[in-house]
């Protein structure tokens, strides 16, 4: 909080069409997805859901483009005070906290299953009577033999943590360093350094996604490890899948930052957009470390 002499007024934007368009966009996206999933599960031959989803994507994408452009324009017109920039910093921090809690739900599910459910299904412990459902069933973790193999065919084999996952770990950890070098580029006013290291980070992110995609392909085709192969496949794909989605978003953010860097944006005192993308990147990196330990190494 500044004193009265230096107080710069807090910029309150005039009315804007963007929020209502973004609401429409996000509604069309979820309404389209809802229809798509229901059509898929009921076997209906209709592309209504896809069309609505596509329209929603267009509305949402366009709106976000103009929204961010407007924010950048306002920032460059010096409308934003230090206080307002602090609002962005707080806002991004709390958003990342909400993402942490989203992952916590899925990690929590994994821990609960491993710690309690596996024993209980096998008739061990205080909820042993659940043994009545599948008498003589012997559970193990990782669960290769779900209790009802007709509904859930277990995987033949699992992904070894010391192959592709280890490579992916190295890729992401390295990318956390490269994005920091890019940040140093901003602080030193060295644009070449900024763009080169940013490019390297994006490259590492894209390679990570390709490796992850190949690993999924391998799991589905060769190992019989799928979303529907029982609780191991469920937790494995949901955790790594949501992480992959976040890496995709983070990579996209970094690509936007690359374009902005090339158009001469960012200086030592004015680089919130870059910092936000970098924090997000570190966040997905930390989540990956959790995944590597709990899903890959301790999980198999």
């Amino acid at each position: 909080m500044s004193n009265e002499e230096t107080y710069q007024e807090y910029f309150v934007p005039h009315s804007s069409k963007l929020p209502i368009l973004a609401s429409l966009g996000i509604f069309l996206i979820v309404y389209g997805m809802g229809n798509m999933f229901n059509e898929m599960s009921s076997g209906t031959d209709s592309s209504f859901g896809e069309i609505v989803l596509f329209l929603g994507g267009l509305v949402m994408g366009g709106t976000l483009f103009f929204w961010f452009s407007e924010v950048i324009k306002e920032n460059h017109s010096n409308l934003y005070s230090d206080q307002l920039n602090r609002s962005f910093v707080w806002g991004m921090s709390w958003f990342i906290f909400s993402e942490v809690m989203f992952f916590a739900a899925f990690f929590g599910a994994l821990f609960y299953v491993r710690t309690f459910v596996v024993d209980w299904i096998g008739g061990v412990g205080e909820r042993g009577p659940s043994d009545m459902l599948w008498g003589g069933y012997e559970p193990h973790w990782p669960m290769m033999n779900p209790p009802d193999p007709e509904k859930f065919a277990g995987p033949k084999e699992l992904i070894s943590p010391w192959g592709l996952p280890l490579i992916n770990t190295l890729l992401l950890v390295t990318s956390s360093f490269t994005v920091t070098f890019a940040h140093h580029g901003i602080n030193e006013g060295n644009r070449k350094k900024l763009t080169n290291w940013l490019l390297a980070t994006i490259f590492l992110g894209v390679v990570f996604l390709f490796v992850q995609g190949y690993e999924y392909y391998h799991a589905y085709v060769d190992l019989g490890l799928t979303l529907a192969s029982g609780i191991y496949g469920t937790t494995f794909f949901m955790l790594t899948g949501f992480h992959g989605a976040h890496v995709t978003l983070g990579t996209f953010m970094l690509i936007v930052m690359l374009f902005r860097a090339r158009s001469g944006h960012f200086s030592k005192t004015d680089c919130f957009g870059f910092e936000a993308a970098a924090w997000y990147w570190h966040f997905v990196d930390v989540v990956w470390l959790g995944l590597f330990v709990f899903v890959y190494v301790l999980g198999s």
């Binding site: 599910a109 209980w120 299904i121 209790p147 509904k151 529907a228 029982g230 609780i231 469920t234």
Partner: peptide, 15 residues
């Protein structure tokens, strides 16, 4: 519901 996971299905090892 739609993708065959087993979070809440004991038959697949969930609960």
């Amino acid at each position: 519901i739609h993708f065959g996971t087993a979070f809440f299905s004991a038959a697949g090892g969930g609960d």
